[in-house]
């Protein structure tokens, strides 16, 4: 690194310093100050006050419980979908493949509120399936299944988007070799594919979980916002804010912010593993080439 820097022309030290100062100011003012103020405000009443706000309010307790039951289910659906979709798209060529890939991005582009509304139009009392669901006594909207559906929708691209590039770069050679040696589909998946993609998969799961825990717009629309029943943690933050209970609201927000920070640390560690693995892959490719040449030479005479 140092050699390449001396060889090229960087802006002079003064300009560099100015740019660094600007970048630190931007990130500091927009990201660090708000993040610090969550914890400052949350603990302004001391740890005891924070604990009372988080653990002693039954509605807040229920919200935490609800978030902890909705997010894992949404993440699990995402994981199964992500692996299947990445396998399909990275290992096969078929008509409509590009169109399918652009569909994966739709939840990123669509406003979560629009997604929530679409679910209400299907499963709500006035919705397409409303009468059927009423007859079956199933509640989707204003209930747990609706929360899971909305959360799954907004997190849908996260796992598959992580897996596609990794699976494309690894290539199908190992899997094809395993199949040709008589391995079954599941054997190939558990013994070849999964070990190869495990860090990328974990990365996607961590991101999907963070998004699932924090989702607001889509969940807001389908939940009906009923305290103690369908309020997830982010919805509880809003409810407390509307009730002018700022310290309690900040306390719940600090739990979510803490989760976000844990997510970032885990993500950081996983990214290191991913980079290391990508380097190993490069290395294996280059040495593979040489051994291949060597075998050809050896086989020659």
């Amino acid at each position: 690194m140092p050699t390449s820097r001396t060889a090229t022309i960087d802006p002079s030290k003064a300009v560099s310093a100015l740019l660094v100062a600007a970048a630190v100011a931007i990130v500091g003012l927009l990201i660090v100050v708000p993040l610090m103020s969550v914890f400052y405000e949350a603990f302004s009443g001391g740890v005891a006050g924070w604990w009372r706000a988080v653990a002693h309010d039954p509605d807040t307790r229920h919200a935490i419980w609800l978030s902890l039951t909705v997010a894992p289910v949404a993440v699990a659906i995402n994981t199964v979908f992500g692996v299947a979709a990445a396998w399909l798209v990275a290992r096969f060529r078929f008509p409509g493949r590009s169109l399918l890939i652009s569909f994966f991005d739709v939840p990123f582009a669509v406003s979560p509120v629009v997604a929530g509304l679409a679910l209400v139009l299907i499963f709500g009392r006035q919705g397409l399936l409303g009468p059927t669901l009423a007859w079956l006594h199933w509640k989707v909207i204003f209930a747990w299944p609706g929360l899971v559906l909305a959360t799954t929708f907004v997190t849908l691209p996260l796992v598959v988007r992580e897996l596609i590039p990794v699976m494309e770069s690894i290539g199908p050679d190992e899997e094809m070799a395993a199949v040709s040696l008589g391995a079954s589909g599941w054997q190939v998946f558990w013994q070849i594919t999964l070990p190869n993609i495990r860090w990328a998969l974990l990365h996607g799961i961590v991101l999907a979980n963070a998004r699932a825990m924090g989702e607001f717009g889509a969940v807001y629309v389908v939940s009906g916002h009923i305290a103690g029943a369908t309020d997830t943690m982010p919805l509880r933050v809003e409810k407390l804010f509307q009730e002018y209970r700022q310290p309690a609201s900040m306390a719940v927000a600090s739990v979510l912010a803490g989760l976000a920070l844990v997510t970032l640390v885990v993500k950081f560690v996983i990214e290191h593993r991913l980079e290391a693995e990508a380097r190993e892959l490069e290395l294996a490719r280059s040495t593979d080439g040489t051994t291949h040449d060597a075998t050809l030479e050896a086989a020659g005479p």
């Binding site: 991101l207 607001f216 717009g217 919805l235 933050v237 927000a253 979510l256 912010a257």
Partner: peptide, 12 residues
């Protein structure tokens, strides 16, 4: 901002 729930961002 990718990991922090947007509700927390708005509140803060």
């Amino acid at each position: 901002p990718l990991a922090l729930p947007t509700a927390v961002a708005g509140l803060v």
